[in-house]
Structure formats: structure tokens, C-alpha cells
Amino acid sequence: MLITEADIEKLATLARLEITEEERRALTPQIASIIAYVEQLNELDTSEVEPAIGGLTPEGERTPTMRDDEVRPSLGQKVALEEAPDPALGYFRVPKVL
């Protein structure tokens, strides 16, 4: 897969990252080599293998598929906002959007 500087620019935009021209030039071959590394997986024939979609714990156990519709205690406003950089009046406050 060919990775161009334009792809890096688009990725940066989608990730809300500002990158300099210099960084863009440096990142392009680095990301290209990471993708080439992962692409080695394509050499395996997986046509007979069911895709493993989600739901496994790090130990390889299946996670519970469903739970009953029961309300469990929430963190509450105070705890929820404890790690927020700029809480105000019970809300997360952020630079104006819209």
C-alpha cells in the first residue's frame, strides 16, 4: 500500500493534530514501514478462518454477551468531573464548538 504525504496530512486532520512540513516528510516513510510490517499478515491464507470479532478478554475468554436492564450505581457528578481539566457548574467545559 502506497502512503503519500497527502495521506499523512489527512490522517493528521482526522486526528486533530497539527504537524509541520518537516514532521510530515519524516512520518511518511515511518508510517509506510509500519503498514508494510502489518501487511505481512496478508500472506497467510485465511479464507477458511472465521473472523474473530470482538468480545475476548486478554486471556482469550469470551466476554458476557448481554446483561439485564438493571440500573447500577454511577460515579456521580463529583467523581465524574474529578479528572476533567476545566469543569464548571457540573459540566465538562470545553473551548466553544459550533
Binding site: A88, L89, Y91, V94, P95, K96, V97
Partner: peptide
């Protein structure tokens, strides 16, 4: 809410 010219609240 206060200062909505500069902030949004979530």
C-alpha cells in the same frame, strides 16, 4: 451558561 461566547459545556 456563563461565557458561552468562549465555552461550550458538556
Amino acid at each position: 451558561l456563563p461565557d458561552t461566547d468562549r465555552y461550550s459545556y458538556v
